[in-house]
Design a binder for these strands. Structure first.
Lengths: 206, 206
DNA sequence: ATCTGTGAAGCTGTTCACAGCT
DNA sequence: AGCTGTGAACAGCTTCACAGAT
């Protein structure tokens, strides 16, 4: 029930539990067992209990979990109990889609800064966010933005990543279709749609 | 060097190797060692060799790998040596970004069908693809499309997923912010940007 | 009786060390 | 000498079985 040596997989499943719990809560479910949550997710109830057990005891033996409490606890664990600010870099097709997406609020995330290098885009306001010149990335430090979503073309990605690190960013969600190199105290999560697609034909054939 | 019992992680790394190899090839690199590829990717050379060893012997001892051969072999393994067709469902912000993206061709992927339920979008042509009525999903069977990219809102996702399975789709890349249930012979890969973001604050704090 | 929390067993994936080619 | 390919050791994650709480 305590710190360090928490599987990475566990951390990645917590948001999925959270998403499902929020949905179940909307449906009026106030209490549930690990079995019920697991069924709803299509995973094992052992998995759910083990994952939660790394962080504390949130259920009652013989009874189960209270939806609301579990949601609050997972928000706490993930540090989503406090509002999280994120910067978005690269307002192309994908960047624009992300900027317009309204589903982050549930998780206490807000995109508070958006950057592009294209003069025609700079100054435009989208969802209350003014697109800024990419040269202003360094201002993220004093605006205490520690999370960045990188949605630039490949050619710009590494340089921007360096600038983000320089500006004090500690986590990068990288949508650029390439590897980026960062100091090892900086978290990077890569999402390249082509990479995901490329696995499918093999996987479908066992 | 042969079949079955190939780690899932290995399959997911192959496209990443491929992407890097294509980049290195563009830079004029015709031969490389597992060490060089690993350095370029920021992973271990053991990993690269072990992953490849599940599928065959593609290098020469004492020498290394030929970029071109390795690219071709990985394309073969992933079945990307033949053109792969994908359908896109949901032409919202994200769907539109995916439809406009031109980076899939490198991996022999082409989006050959796009669907939406919005009458204003149906009939529009984007990148040579005519957006069709979502009611026509069943035609995917005779058009032999086995891969679908699901980019609908949450509310529609499960029903569309059912229709896709019904239409013979065997792999779904799911961008809808929810779980979808499918028969277990159907592959699903979930990408929810909010889920990825939600891990970051915790991970940044170790 | 029921359901959680958890040590231990079992399994899967990674790292290593080195044999085998070139 | 240099680099691949791979069995074996190791590490990490998942599943299990059950003790403990209600």
């Amino acid at each position: 029930m305590q710190n360090h040596k928490i599987p990475d997989e566990t951390v990645h499943r917590l948001p999925v539990y959270l998403r499902e719990l929020l949905t179940l809560q909307e449906q009026g479910i106030e209490k549930l067992s690990s079995q019920e949550l697991a069924d709803s997710l299509g995973c094992g109830c052992y998995q759910v209990r083990k994952d939660l057990s790394y962080f504390g005891r949130f259920g009652k033996r013989g009874v189960g979990y209270t939806t609301e409490i579990l949601i609050r606890e997972i928000l706490n664990i993930l540090k989503l109990n406090v509002p999280q600010k994120a910067a978005l870099i690269g307002i192309g097709n994908l960047g624009l889609a992300i900027l317009r997406y309204t589903g982050f609020g549930k998780y206490n995330f807000r995109i508070t800064a958006a950057f592009d290098s294209d003069g025609k885009k700079i100054g435009q306001i989208i969802r209350n966010i003014t697109i800024e010149d990419i040269k202003k990335i360094r201002t993220l430090k004093r605006r205490s933005v520690r999370i960045a979503i990188l949605a630039t073309p490949e050619a710009a990605a590494q340089q921007i990543a360096d600038e983000l690190v320089e500006a004090g960013v500690t986590s990068i969600l990288n949508f650029a279709p390439c590897n980026i190199k960062v100091p090892k105290n900086v978290q990077v999560r890569n999402i390249d749609i082509a990479m995901e697609l490329a696995c499918l034909p093999f996987m479908a054939s066992e």
